[in-house]
Design a protein around this nucleic acid. Structure first.
Length: 224
DNA sequence: GCATTAACCACAG
DNA sequence: CTGTGGTTAATGC
């Protein structure tokens, strides 16, 4: 099969593979379609695949000591399970589809082999992991040092800029999940959203959120 | 003290 | 699943 060779959603790493390697990847790769709410992989389960989100939106989450914690929301195309696949035998987090999502499961041994024989591939994988770690560091500082107004507005901006590339958000998380993402309670999320709505900074109708006053949002996001 | 922040509980759509 | 109101604990002038 040549499913990988002609795929338009190649990761930067995979663009460094030659046709033979692409064929090997294609032969070992399985593409699966998930619906909204489906679990792609589960915390504490054995993992033997690198996961690549070809298209869609996914939340990465862990069952923390106190409650559920959403680590991040990521949009395809992107790798997703590299740390959890290479870092340990079992998954340290779960991944759940937030919208219809198409996922490639890549055999870990094939992936390992590419890292060994193709340094450009390996380099791109490292770049990917580094970028992600930088993002997580930033998120960590924001979570710890910003107040809730800042965290929520920052999250709205993230969805607007990085996920939807639009000032209109079709929020895929409910209020509870939003709270789990920014470490607060669902009541607080509700309250703050209606406050922002009242102040004409955003416009809410259920899951649809329109960002009206970008400058205000950025300001609140910054000063926390 | 007094104000602010945000969590928890309860209850109603 | 959401939005609100009341209560309360912690923290900062």
């Amino acid at each position: 099969m040549d499913i990988c060779q002609f795929c338009s959603k190649k990761s930067p790493a995979v663009t460094k593979l030659d046709p033979d390697e692409l064929k090997i990847l294609g032969d070992s790769c399985v593409e699966v379609a998930f619906s909204k709410g489906d679990i792609i992989f589960k915390q504490n389960a054995l993992s033997s695949n690198v996961i690549f989100i070809k298209e869609g939106l996914v939340k990465i989450h862990v069952a923390g000591p106190e409650k559920e914690q959403i680590l991040k929301v990521s949009k395809g195309p992107t790798y997703l399970g590299i740390p959890t696949t290479f870092g340990d035998k079992i998954n340290h987090y779960s991944a759940t589809a937030l919208v219809p999502t198409s996922v490639c499961f890549i055999d870990i041994n094939v992936f390992k082999e590419f890292i060994k024989i193709n340094s450009d591939f390996a380099y791109e994988v490292i770049v990917d992991l580094c970028k992600d770690e930088l993002n997580q560091f930033e998120r960590c500082v924001n979570l710890v040092q910003k107040q809730i107004h800042g965290r929520l507005c920052g999250t709205l901006l993230y969805f607007s800029e990085d996920i939807f590339q639009s000032d209109f958000i079709e929020m895929p998380l409910n209020r509870n999940e939003l709270a789990d993402l920014i470490c607060t309670s669902r009541e607080t999320v509700s309250r703050l959203l209606s406050e922002l709505n009242k102040e004409q900074i955003i416009q809410i109708s259920g899951k649809r959120i329109k960002l009206l006053d970008m400058d205000k949002l950025k300001q609140i996001s910054l000063k926390g």
